[in-house]
Amino acid sequence: MAHKRLKFLGVAAAVLMVAMACGGSPSGGGGTKQYKIGLVTDIGGLNDKSFNHLAYVGLEKAKSDFGIVDSVTESHSGNDYVPNLTSFASKNYDLVIGVGFLMQEAVGTVSGTFPNIHFAIIDGAGTDSTGKDLQHTNVQSLFFKEQDAGAMVGVISGMLEKQGKAKKNKGVISAVGGVSIPPVNHYIAGYKWAATMEDPGIKVEVGYSNDFTDPAKCQGVAKGQINDGSDILFQVAGGCGLGVLQAAGQAGLYSIGVDADQKAADPSVIASALKKVDVATYTAIQNVVKGQFKSGALTFSIANDGAGYAVDNLTLPADIQAELKTVQDKIKAGTLTPPADIP
């Protein structure tokens, strides 16, 4: 009994000391503010194998680097965006991050209600109901030049095809988009532009599955393209697009992953176009923690390492590697500008 009581006293004393240290610290370590960061996913949820997941990765990294308090809410329907964002804002979070294009209007509304709370939105801006950017001074838009990443993998496809180093070499490559929306089309635009630059005679077929979650649908579209002679398939459809990689693998062709490095998804994946949503999320948090929050657009591109590419299950010939470096440097320098709209 006595032993137990002693133990309790010890614990109590320890707690008391910690409390005193925290509460009454006159200077030094205890004085640093703990930042509170809230992340709201769109309806894809955290396991979307796409940008919601990457945003979470960025949040976790920021958590271990800056010791922030983080909290995540998944939205189950579009009805949840406003209440979820409002909830964090009403609790005086230091930064509320909305993930995805779909949340633009909600971020526009809630950021207007809470002018003193900082917001960041991935792939969009805080807009009104007509889609006009409200330009609230407390909103940072995290945009990506997906076309930069698309261009890099376009270079790989175009050169492989021109040099006859792909599988069928009929001069046809393709892309499968989820839905025809700007972030998807940027990727495809860069891809088509760069492939055509490397191999002017190439045909780039573009199809849409109108879905982001059902791999079977994307696989169907991919198979249609394969039947049309496509040699290298670029997926731009999140979880649905995994079916594209699979279809390419079954047909013994090459495929290209999107957003994250999808090397492990299928042996057919020769490269991935990277959209570093994790870097963007991390940067946004870092800015707030360092007191450097800025409103307006922050664009992630090859130039600031917010977009890029990964070479996966294929060793590229030296000349392709050299060309990749040249193109990358030119895009960084601004002498080459991949288009945002599909040419």
Binding site: K49, T213, P215, A216, K217, G239, G243, Q246, A265
Partner: peptide
Amino acid sequence: FLAIGISNTFVPNMTD
């Protein structure tokens, strides 16, 4: 068939 035949992973609500 859907998850380990046609695709090779699980995606929430993949039966659609």
